[in-house]
Amino acid sequence: MSRKDPTAPLWRAAVLLRVITLVFAAAVVGTHHGEYASTALAWTTVGAMAAWTAVTSWYYLRPDPAAWFTGVDLAVCCAIMALSRFVLTEAQLEVQSVPLVPTVWVTAAVAVGAVRGGPVLGTVYGGVISVCNYVVRGYVDVDLTRDMVLLVGVGFVLGLAARTSRRSAERLERALRVEAATAERERLARSIHDGVLQVLARVGKRGRELGGEAEELASLAARQEIALRALVSAAPLDSGADEVDLRGPLQVLATDRVQVSVPATPVVLPGETAAELGDLAREALANVERHAGGDARAWVLLEDLGGEVVLSVRDDGVGIAAERLAAAEAQGRMGVARSIRGRAEALGGTAALDTAPNEGTEWEVRVPRRTGKRGSR
């Protein structure tokens, strides 16, 4: 088995269970030797069980066994159980004191199904084996029903354990990736602080002292300094994660003209939702840069209300007249109609615009929280 597979110990345990139960089944046949309707077929069945045990043991100890093979395994076990109709006498089939030839050997099929497919598949496999037991015996009673409860219960519990192991391993791997990214970011932050940030700060200070064209360079250097500080201080993102802290994509938008305010605790959302909201904020800020005026400032505010997330982007620019906005949408200019409202609606939320001439512009986007836990990574 692959050492990276968190269920590897469970696969080995299932293989060991099959070997042990094979020995037990052979001992039972030996105990009832000469009592069967066909003793030769009984030992032939044991031989088939031994051969299948060897095949499955080899296969299940390989990395990532396929789900289809567990289905074949279940079918083979049911077929071997059916052979008991020809091995046992009618009297033996009617009493529980003489077990079917495979006895508990078939529980291994339930175990591998549970390990491979989780609690649902484990429960299904346990039910199939139980139904086959009823059919071979030809009746239903309390003892057979007790066996069914045990088989279904084992399949469910073992499947639950396998699923929990996989999820725990995924969380650990994700945490290790974030830890490594954080360490690398801190190393880069120290290097940048000792070099690039100090140079940008020096250029900004000196440019303001010189004035003229140098002052414009100083302004650009100051913006880049702020953006770089925000970038190295933002929480690292795990691109392979299903959930993302939205604060990171927003914090990197901060400049000397854009102020970003986010909660102190993580705002965890599905990765796709976080990416869309990040793009929406960038589009709104791009509109500020293009239309609000050269001296306009902007503020980005993120609020986590538990059931929904509110993202606000406000500026103190020239604002937008109502007729201009309606004309832009009618003419098919999609920056507002699609990039902002469209993104919000695609996420099941709303985007409200509050603007007036010379009174700035404010977008308030509300998106329902469908997954992700408030205040946790």
Rank of each mutant, 00 (worst) to 15 (best):
A91S: 10
R324T: 13
A221S: 09
L325A: 05
W11Q: 10
R116F: 00
S219C: 07
A264M: 07
I226M: 15
G307P: 13
L302R: 08
A241I: 13
V112K: 02
M148L: 13
C132W: 00
P6A: 14
R163S: 04
V28T: 09
A175M: 06
L10P: 14
I226A: 14
A292I: 00
R177Q: 03
D279K: 04
V120S: 07
L253R: 10
V120R: 15
R324H: 11
L325M: 11
V157H: 09
A221P: 11
G127N: 01
G34T: 08
R185W: 04
A235Y: 15
V112A: 01
A189P: 10
A344V: 09
V244P: 02
M49R: 03
V232A: 07
E359H: 14
G195N: 10
H193F: 15
A26E: 04
I20Y: 03
R338D: 13
A37P: 10
R366E: 10
G204T: 07
V136N: 01
G332D: 09
V55C: 07
A66N: 05
Y60C: 00
L160Y: 06
P270V: 03
I320N: 14
V136H: 13
V95F: 12
Y125R: 15
E345G: 06
A344G: 08
E345Q: 13
I226N: 05
R229K: 10
E215F: 03
R62N: 02
Q224V: 00
G317M: 00
S219Y: 07
V87D: 12
G335K: 00
V115G: 14
A114K: 03
V260T: 06
V149D: 03
R187Y: 09
T103D: 06
V288M: 12
S261W: 01
I129N: 05
P9H: 07
L217F: 15
V336N: 13
L210H: 01
E345T: 07
R370E: 14
T182I: 13
R333A: 11
S312M: 14
Q96V: 07
A214C: 06
G211M: 08
D141L: 02
A351L: 10
N133Y: 02
R377L: 07
P266W: 03
T145Q: 11
L246T: 05
D147G: 07
